[in-house]
Amino acid sequence: MGLDIIVGIKYVPNTTNVNIDPKTGTLVREGVPSVVNPHDLVAVELALRLRDRYGGSVTAISMAPPHAVAGLEHVLGMGVDRAILVSDRVFAGADTLATSYVLAKTIEKIGRYDLIVMGQETIDSSTGHIGAQVASWLDLPYVYYAIDVEYTGDGFIVTRELEDRVERYRLAKPALISAKMYSLEPRQVTLRDKLRAVIERPIETWSNKDLGLDPNCVGLRGSPTIVSKVEFTPKVPRKNIIFEGDLREAVRKLVQALVEEGVI
């Protein structure tokens, strides 16, 4: 009774250390390489664990420019079975609504699936919209902050973890879940799987020719969100205070300083 799972990934600039140009005040993007959104790797890990447990397949999808193929190769290297890159100029400039629409239509076209797994959010925009929106386009039950899934044959028991409690939901299949970030450690890329990704190349590229979507509903034109202004939070100058003394004394001074600053 294998599980056919679709997992969504986004290939994002690795913004772990983003530098701001002191002169222009803008982000230094020169030569910043992209990575698979780390929170999506948790979704991939969850999907792979479910496949390993119940059998079936994992298909990764991503709506992105062609260079995102490297991100799909990365998750194929982790053991994902198949990947679909949805790439078309008309999809460019999409907000979360237009993106989720394209992803939903992609999933519809894939057709056969039991479960969709997404990451909680992305490191480059942190909206957390996509999972909920795709679920609503496809009219699927949706649970977020998921940390584990049990397959019951006709549905799933999804465990989700909140700050103060753990909840269990019973979902009919097909369903969509977002994996809680940091809840699982993504597995490593292996030689065997990477070799398969490179040699068999189980990556398809779909354009809007394959999906046939109304250009008014995708890309910039299908995006009602307007980013009117971006403001950076003011940089708080660091005080560079070093607290001397033995550990106990230094910590006491530190706590006192934090209290004085109103931080704690």
């Binding site: 690795n14 772990t16 250390n17 530098n19 910043v32 390489p33 450690e185």
Partner: peptide, 11 residues
């Protein structure tokens, strides 16, 4: 070091 790019492995 802030000018460098890492993809740090949690392990």
């Amino acid at each position: 070091l802030n000018n460098n790019i890492w993809d740090v492995d949690p392990r």
